[in-house]
């Protein structure tokens, strides 16, 4: 069975997208911790974090508006934007990152050889590279998620929209012989967000919550000038 025949069955039913309401985000950072726990993202320690080698797939970017004392802090949760025209994909010589039919920009860790071209070509800087062998001190290795692999040194990784949860949700729906219901699949970050700023769903289903929110006038995409057709939609309105 080739990959193509597998994909044909599922083609076009789903297109996953995320809406982040920046007006709701208070920059608490719970999503980054949830992501870290869910996806076996290693903690690198103070020294390496200072070297800009943190592995977080999702980070809260903090920007300051205005001059002291009229200072305002704004937050931007930054994660892989799951571009439809992803610049990282065509540059990978080994197909370690490619586009799947559900609109996800997926990453195959076992295929990656670490040329790091994808990271260079990502304007958001969300791709992370395993600079060292990762360690989990006892008993931390007990909390590793068995649904997702622990990455070797020398490979790239990034946000997958919690691929393992999507797969579980779809398997569940298939067992019951139905489509995935809206809100059935929730990534770790959306689940944890105390202000419910993050919404995840199938944007192809016009009745889904993401599709509704995406119609908002407050909608915008990051670095739209590159024409990447990103699938993380940010909402940002008045003050």
């Amino acid at each position: 069975m080739t990959l193509k025949s597998f994909n044909d069955k599922h083609d076009n039913d789903y297109h996953w997208a995320m809406v982040i309401d920046l007006d709701c985000c208070d920059g608490c950072g719970a999503c980054t911790i949830a992501c870290q726990a869910e996806n076996n993202v290693p903690t690198v320690g103070e020294e390496r974090a200072y070297d800009k080698r943190t592995m977080s797939w999702l980070r809260i970017e903090r920007y300051f508006e205005g001059e002291w004392p009229n200072l305002r802090v704004v937050f931007l949760p930054m994660l892989c934007q799951q571009c439809d025209k992803a610049p990282c994909e065509p540059v990978c010589p080994v197909f370690a990152t490619y586009h799947n039919p559900e609109g996800l920009n997926v990453m195959v860790y076992n295929r990656c050889i670490g040329t790091r071209f994808c990271g260079n070509n990502c304007p958001f800087g969300v791709r992370k590279f395993n600079w060292f062998k990762n360690r989990w001190e006892e008993p931390l290795e007990q909390q590793l998620n068995p649904d997702i692999s622990v990455r070797e040194k020398g490979v790239m990784e990034k946000c997958t929209f919690c691929m393992q949860r999507i797969r579980r949700g779809k398997d569940h729906a298939k067992d019951e012989g139905r489509e995935v219901r809206d809100g059935e699949i929730i990534p770790a970050c959306a689940q944890t967000c105390p202000t419910k700023a993050i919404t995840f769903g199938n944007i192809r289903d016009s009745k889904s919550k993401v599709a509704e929110l995406a119609k908002s006038k407050r909608r915008h995409h990051l670095l739209e000038e590159h024409g990447l057709e990103t699938h993380v939609i940010y909402l940002k309105g008045g003050e």
């Binding site: 390496r48 070297d51 800009k52 080698r53 943190t54 670490g114 790091r116 990271g119 260079n120 990502c122 800087g125 791709r127 992370k128 590279f129 395993n130 600079w131 060292f132 062998k133 040194k153 020398g154």
Partner: peptide, 11 residues
């Protein structure tokens, strides 16, 4: 040791 022995970093 891994590529960390260089000074390369994100991004």
């Amino acid at each position: 040791m891994g590529m960390g022995v260089t000074d390369l970093r994100h991004p």
